Amino acid sequence: MFDGFVEIPAPMVIGIAAVVAALGFGTGMAVAGPSLAEANSPYARVSAVVRADATVERSKGVSWVRKVDVGRYCVKLSDPDVRLTESVPVAAPLAESAPIGAQALVASRPSPYCGNTADEVYVGTGTEANQGRDLPFALLIP
C-alpha cells in the first residue's frame, strides 16, 4: 500500500540536486525569524533550502519550517493555491553536510507528523543505517 512517502535512490539525488540548482537556488544569506531570504526560483511554485535545525536559508512560497522530531520537518506553504495532493514535491539532502547514504523523504499528501494539514509538507531526513537524522535539505514543488 502506498503510504505517501517517496524514497529517492542515491543516484537520483545527484540529478535532483542539479535540477534544483538549475531552477535558480542562488546564493543568499541565512535570515532568522519570520522574514525569510527570497529564493530566485522562477520555475518553481515552492522552493526552500533548509538547515538541519529547521532554519530556512532561502525560500519561495514557504512561511516557516518546524522540526517536529529528529529528522522530521514540517514546511508551511504560504500560497493557498499550491495543493499538496495535486503537486509533485521533491526533497533532496544537501551535499555540503550530508553523509554518504543520506536520504530525504517527502510526503505527497497531508501527514500526521504535521497535523494532517493540507498546507504543510512533511520532509523526513536520515541515512540507511540511521533513519531519523537531522540533515539539511532542499524542497521543490514545480
Rank of each mutant, 00 (worst) to 15 (best):
A104G: 08
Q103D: 00
V65Y: 05
A32Q: 12
V82Y: 04
V31L: 15
V46H: 01
S78W: 00
V50A: 09
F2D: 14
T27Y: 12
S111C: 09
V65E: 03
G126Y: 09
T27A: 12
A102Y: 07
A138W: 04
E57G: 05
V6E: 12
L77K: 04
C74V: 09
V121G: 02
L94Q: 09
P93G: 09
G126T: 07
G61H: 02
A98C: 10
D53A: 08
E7Q: 13
R66W: 01
V68Y: 07
V90G: 03
Q131M: 11
A48E: 03
A22C: 01
E57V: 15
A10T: 05
L135K: 05
D81N: 12
E120V: 07
A92N: 03
P11L: 08
G15M: 09
L77I: 09
P9I: 10
L94R: 15
R51N: 14
S108K: 12
V13N: 12
M1Q: 09
A54N: 07
G101N: 15
A37S: 15
K60C: 01
L139C: 03
P9L: 10
S47A: 15
V6T: 15
S108P: 00
A32D: 11
G61N: 04
S87C: 06
L139N: 02
C114A: 10
R45D: 10
V88A: 13
A48N: 02
N116L: 14
V121Y: 01
S97K: 05
T117M: 08
V70R: 15
A21R: 15
S63Y: 05
